[in-house]
């Protein structure tokens, strides 16, 4: 059990609701993942654009907490208005704050992010900013009132894993009181395990599960990866060494040879 804002959760995996082959497979994958938090979005109602009653009905059958996002927003103002609409539509003050600064790699705009975070915290939101692993940006977000930070592992949908373990480890060491969640860029369960081994509180992912050949099986695999990573962190890893040290006792070795 762990604490995410005011919510007590079993799973340290947060999962997205997008890109699944069908609402039914989405539902099964979310159940298999064990995730207690699911991200959602809001969009214009357009013919053939997905969403709609089937998706919404499938999601409401699950016993999960919703985390709406502001995906696609390119300014603080757009993100703030989207968050306000999400709060009413989904009945939650939680918001995954995305302010995109670059369309090529979907890199967050740190300036817009801090500006929007400050305003949304003042309006009573629990802000989950999708950010980079830049320490100073993260400190500014904490100054703005964020208690949770969600640095990327790699750009969204790239499945490259943790591109900067040093930067992520630094964040963990420097911001021990903040809930840290690696969001985006994970591809396989070992990436999730690595994030948890570093001491991150959780991971958030979508594409790696939804676009797997078998999303339900991959959801289960990530569930185990997250558990393994957290257990390893709590167990405390041995330090790295430069030189080999035999694990089998040397004393009493037969056929001992002297040079």
């Amino acid at each position: 059990m762990w604490q995410l804002a005011e919510q007590t959760l079993d799973s340290r995996l947060l999962i997205g609701s997008s890109l699944y082959p069908s609402p039914r497979i989405m539902q099964e994958a979310i159940r298999a993942s064990g995730a207690g938090v699911v991200t959602v979005a809001l969009r214009r109602q357009l013919p053939g654009a997905g969403g709609g009653e089937d998706f919404w009905a499938a999601l409401r059958e699950l016993d999960v907490r919703l985390l709406p996002n502001t995906a696609g927003c390119h300014s603080a103002r757009e993100a703030i208005t989207t968050a306000q609409m999400a709060r009413e539509l989904f009945g939650t003050r939680w918001i995954k704050l995305e302010v995109i600064g670059d369309d090529y790699n979907l890199q967050p705009d740190p300036f817009g992010l801090v500006e929007a975070a400050r305003e949304l915290v003042a309006q009573g939101f629990e802000v989950f900013p999708y950010c980079t692993e830049d320490l100073v940006v993260c400190e500014r977000l904490v100054d703005a009132g964020c208690r949770i930070l969600m640095p990327w592992g790699a750009p969204i949908g790239t499945a490259r894993g943790l591109l900067n373990p040093y930067g992520l480890r630094t964040l963990r060491e420097r911001l021990p009181e903040i809930t840290l969640i690696v969001d985006a860029g994970l591809g396989v369960p070992s990436h999730a395990a690595q994030a948890l081994e570093l001491g991150f509180d959780a991971v958030l992912l979508n594409t790696a599960i939804a676009q797997a050949h078998d999303p339900v099986a991959m959801a289960s695999a990530f569930r185990h990866g997250v558990c393994a990573g957290r257990l390893a962190f709590e167990a405390g890893r041995m330090p790295e060494r430069d030189l080999a040290q035999p694990s089998t006792p040397v004393v009493g070795t037969p056929f001992w040879h002297h040079k």
Binding site: S17, V40, R44, Q45, W56, N69, L89, A184
Partner: peptide
């Protein structure tokens, strides 16, 4: 006017 509904999101 922007009129939005729940949608899949990551």
């Amino acid at each position: 006017i922007e009129l939005v509904i729940p949608m899949q999101g990551g």
